[in-house]
Design a protein around this nucleic acid. Structure first.
Lengths: 345, 345
DNA sequence: CTGTTAGCGCCTTCAA
DNA sequence: TTGAAGGCGCTAACAG
């Protein structure tokens, strides 16, 4: 075992200071507030730091300074590319700051969500970004007490604790369904996976648009307790078509499901978009290049994450816990999975 | 601002202890080593903790105990579902431990990888899980010095620092290409995105299998510096087919590319698998339910992540930095995107 | 089973 | 611009 270094002591600020004959606080300052140390001394210190391989102990720093520089990010899952997009935005913003991300997911379980939040709060986080599962009292209470800024990425029409950021999923879904109606589809179903805040809002939008058109029928909805996946899309479509033989379109809670539907339609011999329309949600990478392309709702995921991190970082710098609600815009992207020219009745 | 609590002091162990007339170490023990405190006292303490809303300060704990309970996980990206699968495994194992995950990605940038590793090491991590970009001297040096166990998820034929875990990407790729050859395809191309350890090993496997068959031709390879995506799959296939009109199959670095190829084949009017064979890599969710299904290499991603976390957690408990190399098995999954019955020459 | 003592490594505050 | 003193909240090590 040539690489063991068990016996080695960690190099501390004091070690560096002693080697140079200065005090440890000066070394500390040279590292964190370089402008407060004379440039000649600073250069010597930095060289010595490099030389001795000094690495700051973040736990000690956090304890002494009372802030850890950790941003806790909690989402329901990572198996969903939509949340990945958000994470990518958060990361991008955090990269150029001196903070770090601590990530966790709740796996669509409320208890886990609560537990994770508690763990975050144990660490004097600089801030928290939460894409929550639902509006729960216990979560709200916990966030209300949190000694740091909190940003929730959630439906914009809800009013959660702290800052929030999002689109109206209800409106977005209604827009999608109205598009299907405008294309001339009539028996429009909806498929969805595990129940959560966002999927329920989307369902409401679907139901509202179908009611407007006088075509609402609860039997057109097919859901499942599983987490969404391409495979689930296939399964749900099979189930729905079997139950509702005259189904002529489907609004999918997300693009993964929609992709599954696309494949299943081919297997079933349903022609898309002529006989059958498909609309997804999120505008993932593949929606633009599938054959046919997938009509879907574009959600500015990256911007959402980026902006959420921005809000946290700014609020942390200012030391407050501002209230703030920010609406982002969605967009319907029309592609080949729905008819190009709306039919005239 | 009714929710500000800026003036509030944090509840400490000592506060709880004072309220009960015991010493703080006893409260500490009641929380961490309950069996060492009499059950009556323990019950009183736990109640008081609950009552006062005490939450341990993890930074203080880390400083005092010299371990943070943080497992640093570093992967190239999260936009790739393959890494998500690994993460899911890591999470699952970590969930039932008292550790936390600190996640970061290098975004396929070596400098970022190095920087992140340095940040992890600043935090007295309990361990590190690394899916590295390449075998780099600076990274190896840093890991060699790391005062914690390190697990690398990497190609198994390489011998990285610390523990490692993985499959032979070279062999897996060769297996895939031999399958295409056995199906009777002859002009078999390969497409890939950003260069990295794993993609290069796959290329070697491809090249080896093609040489065996006497059909190796460098012009059959089409790559791009972009990160892989479904869209890139479409683009690379278009480019390749244009350059090599008699191309009759393609081995894709991963399933995202393969899905793009599948769509593009449809657009180009190439019949899969009759006129054109496609083999992916990873066996993502959609490979099993696309139409046609995607022949691909199954990689035990979840198990990889789970096992990596297991190794870290175990090594951390034992306090050592064992050397350990563990091979996992891949499997060729034959589906509709390659011919069912191998042709006889 | 419970308590005492003494830091962990750094930063805040105040002083020079 | 630099330094001295003290403490952040917790736990290891050792007593009783």
């Amino acid at each position: 075992m040539p690489h063991r270094r068990d016996g080695m002591q960690r190099v501390t600020l004091l070690d560096v200071a002693n080697a140079l004959g200065v005090s440890s606080i000066t070394v500390s300052r040279a590292l964190r507030e370089p402008e407060k140390v004379s440039s000649t001394l600073r250069a010597r210190i930095l060289a010595q730091v490099e030389d001795m391989g000094y690495v700051p102990d973040l736990a000690a720093r956090a304890l002494a300074s009372r802030h850890s520089g950790i941003i806790g990010v909690l989402t329901p899952t990572l198996t969903n590319l939509a949340f990945i997009g958000i994470m990518a935005g958060v990361e991008e913003r955090v990269r150029s700051s001196d903070m770090r991300i601590q990530y966790a997911n709740s796996n669509y379980d409320s208890e886990a969500e609560l537990r994770q939040l508690r763990i975050f709060l144990s660490q004097s986080p600089a801030g928290i970004v939460l894409a929550g599962l639902q509006q729960e009292q216990r979560v709200s209470d916990m966030l209300r007490r949190a000694p740091c800024p909190v940003v929730q990425i959630v439906d914009i029409e809800l009013m959660p604790v702290g800052m929030s950021l999002g689109i109206s999923h209800r409106e977005a879904a209604a827009t999608a369904v109205r598009h299907l109606l405008a294309c001339g589809y009539r028996r429009i179903g909806m498929i969805a996976g595990t129940r959560n805040l966002r999927s329920e809002r989307r369902y409401e939008g679907y139901a509202a648009a179908m009611r407007e058109a006088g075509g609402f029928d609860p039997s057109l909805v097919e859901t499942d307790a599983s987490v969404t996946s391409v495979e689930l899309g296939c399964r749900l479509l099979r189930r729905l078509v079997k139950r509702v033989p005259d189904l002529d379109a489907v609004f999918c809670e997300n693009d993964d499901l929609a992709l599954g539907v696309l494949f299943e339609c081919r297997r079933l011999g349903l022609r898309v978009p002529e006989d059958f329309g498909i609309c997804g949600y999120n505008d993932l990478d593949f929606a633009a290049c599938s054959e046919p392309g997938l009509t879907t709702i574009h959600v500015p995921r990256f911007e959402l994450g980026y902006r959420a991190a921005e809000l946290v970082i700014r609020a942390a710098a200012l030391g407050g816990r501002p209230d703030h609600v920010e609406r982002m815009e969605f967009e319907l992207i029309q592609r080949g999975s729905t008819r190009r020219l709306p039919l005239q009745a």
